[in-house]
Each structure stands twice: as C-alpha cells, then as structure tokens.
Design a protein around this nucleic acid. Structure first.
Length: 261
DNA sequence: AAGCAGTGCAACCGCGGATGC
DNA sequence: TGCATCCGCGGTTGCACTGCT
C-alpha cells in the first residue's frame, strides 16, 4: 500500500526554525490549542509540515520542558530505565517530567553511552564488555554487581557519581557546566525569548483544553495553568530553575500512575 | 589566525501502530 | 475486513560550536 508523504516537500521549509516561525507556532497554539498537526502549519501560516511543527513544539517550545543537562538523578534513572526498557525513549521520557524522548536519546548517545563503554559496560545489554581495558581496570566486584542487579537503580550510582567509589576509573568529561552555561547563554540572547517576555498572551489560555492526554494530566494536576497568563515560564528557559517545575513535576509524578518512581 | 577533528544537539526520515470509515 | 490517514517513535543526519594543532 503506497503511502502519501506527510506534506508536499517541495513547498515546505526545512532546517532550523527561525524566531519568527517559533512566534507563529506559539501564538497559534496559545490561541487555538493543539489540533491536528497536519492542519497546524496551514492555519498558523507556516511553510512547514505538520510533523516538523509537532517536533518543534514537543522538543523545544513546550513550556513545561526543563532545559539544560540531565541531573545525576535523571541520568541514573535513564540508565536504570534503559536497562529495563531498552531504546524505548518515549517510555523513558515519560518517567522524566519535562524531558523529551529526543533529549534523552541524544544524552544517551552522547554522554551515558560513552561513560558505559569507558567503564567496560555494553550500553545495549548493560552487561560487562569482554576483553576491554576498562574491564580489567575497573575490577570484578563492580562488574558482578552490574551483571546481577543492573535493573536496580542504585546499582548505577557509581556511574553517575564522579566522587563515588569508582571515580578513579572514570574520566568523566568535566565540561558539563560549561555546556550548560553555553546553552543558557544562547537563550539569553534568543530574540524569541525577548519577544515572548514582552508578548501579551491571552488571559484565557487554552492549555486546559488540550486534547492530548498528557496535557490533560498536566493541567488537571497543576490545577491551574503553569503560565497563569504570564510568560514566566520562559524564565525557566534561561535559568533552568527547577523550583516551580518541581512542583509541577511532583504533582505529575504522583498522578501519572499513582506511584513515585 | 587558519584549518581540522571531535562533539553535541536540533531536525529530518521512514516505519509501525492507532483510528476512522 | 480492508483501506486510508494521521500521529508518534526510534534511528539517523546535518551543522554549529569548541578545542586542538
């Protein structure tokens, strides 16, 4: 069965999003909420395919996103969940509020995977790699721990705690803070952020009307729009402040499946 | 200062599942 | 039941940025 392309590729713009396009997409969703993505670009006046709009929104513009590198706790959770779930990034992301599957996938491939390999652990199986220098250097006790209990979250603490017992075996990149500040500074200069900080958003935000189950959860749990008619959430983009989002996350965690993880 | 290689992230692609008719 | 359509996921790519020589 032939499948039509999601859009006419000749007539859609591709590549990085401009601030102007972001404005249009945000304005549209603020005004109308999320409807079918296929219709969004047309209605919002964007020369993008719906898929691209959805991706941009979910991975970058969504207001409940955390920004910056994953915390050690989050990394540990990712490792733990990956041991259980494999490359099911969306499932993993569902356990990390404010993180996207794309973000976690990227972080896994660029950071965690390398750490595991360096330590002689197969990222795919979470089992010790055979015949590697790392294995011989790391010692056997840790490997046995990994092998027998890799599905338990605390077992990966050595990986994520540079001050931990295995820290001598890790040449963990020390540029995390640098990377974080780099990302932060880029947002400081983002004209979109400036625009949004100045924009007057609709007081009757349509967020509560989202059809997505996730967002229904979100709004119902929070009890009120996290934006409250303001653009305060954008400040989180710049400061990576976990304060307000923590409250949201905590509520979401408790309500998503009734249990903490 | 310029060139090169490595790194990290945003975005794209194609497939499969879900849904509606 | 089969087909058409849409959405979301996971893998991959492209490119900007950084550090090294």
């Amino acid at each position: 069965m032939g499948r039509q392309p999601c859009c006419d590729k000749k007539r859609v713009k591709r590549g990085p999003w401009t601030a102007e396009e972001d404005k249009k997409l945000i304005s549209f969703i603020l005004t109308h909420g999320r409807c079918c993505w296929r219709a969004v670009p047309k209605l919002a006046g964007l020369l993008r395919c719906g898929k691209s709009c959805r991706l941009r929104w979910t991975n970058y513009l969504r207001p409940d996103l955390k920004r910056g590198l994953l915390t050690t706790d989050e990394e540990q959770l990712v490792v733990d969940l990956h041991a259980k779930l494999g490359n099911r990034w969306s499932k993993i992301a569902a356990k990390l509020p404010g993180r996207t599957d794309n973000e976690i996938k990227n972080h896994w491939n660029t950071h965690i995977k390398k750490k595991l390999i360096k330590m002689g652990i197969d990222p795919a199986t979470h089992q010790p790699l055979a015949n590697t220098k790392a294995v011989s250097q790391t010692g056997t006790s840790m490997q046995s721990t990994i092998t027998t209990k890799s599905a338990q979250s605390n077992d990966m603490a050595y990986l994520l705690d540079p001050k931990g017992s295995c820290s001598r075996d890790m040449s963990v990149p020390t540029d995390s803070m640098e990377q974080s500040s780099r990302n932060t500074s880029s947002h400081d200069l983002d004209p979109l952020v400036n625009w949004l900080l100045e924009a007057e958003l609709p007081a009757d935000e349509p967020w509560l009307n989202f059809t997505s189950s996730n967002d229904d959860d979100f709004s119902s749990i929070v009890g009120q729009s996290p934006w409250d008619g303001t653009t305060d959430w954008l400040l989180d983009y710049q400061e990576f402040s976990m304060g307000s989002s923590r409250l949201i996350d905590g509520a979401r965690i408790q309500n998503s499946d009734g249990s903490n993880f």
